[in-house]
């Protein structure tokens, strides 16, 4: 294998980050986010990316419990924040 699991993970995270930024810019043009929408969406998105990074890394190191805990501790708040940010952005419109 040319790339290790962790290298592929961080490459993928780079792509996901880029997609997330593109999506934010696109929807901002449409919905014109206010300060709180920006903060909530960016925090939620960062936490979601961190959750992916943590959980996949834990699987790679062979500690599945750390992976599932990561999904609970970082994943659930990230989904809540993203949904909240989405709602705030749409409501504003």
């Amino acid at each position: 294998m040319i790339f290790t699991g962790i290298e592929i993970l961080f490459f993928t995270l780079g792509l996901l980050t880029a997609l997330f930024i593109v999506a934010l810019v696109k929807y901002n043009k449409e919905l014109n986010f206010d300060k709180w929408s920006w903060i909530t969406l960016i925090t939620g998105g960062s936490l979601a990316l961190f959750c992916i990074a943590w959980s996949v890394s834990s699987v790679l190191e062979g500690v599945p419990r750390a992976s599932s805990m990561g999904m609970v501790v970082f994943g659930i708040p990230s989904i809540v924040l993203l949904l909240l940010g989405r709602r705030m952005a749409i409501k504003k419109k």
């Binding site: 962790i6 961080f10 490459f11 780079g14 792509l15």
Partner: peptide, 19 residues
Amino acid sequence: LNRRNFLKLGAAGAALGAV
């Protein structure tokens, strides 16, 4: 390109930079 360096790239907001 070790694992820690990838984190640091991430911390620098350079996810695109990795490419």
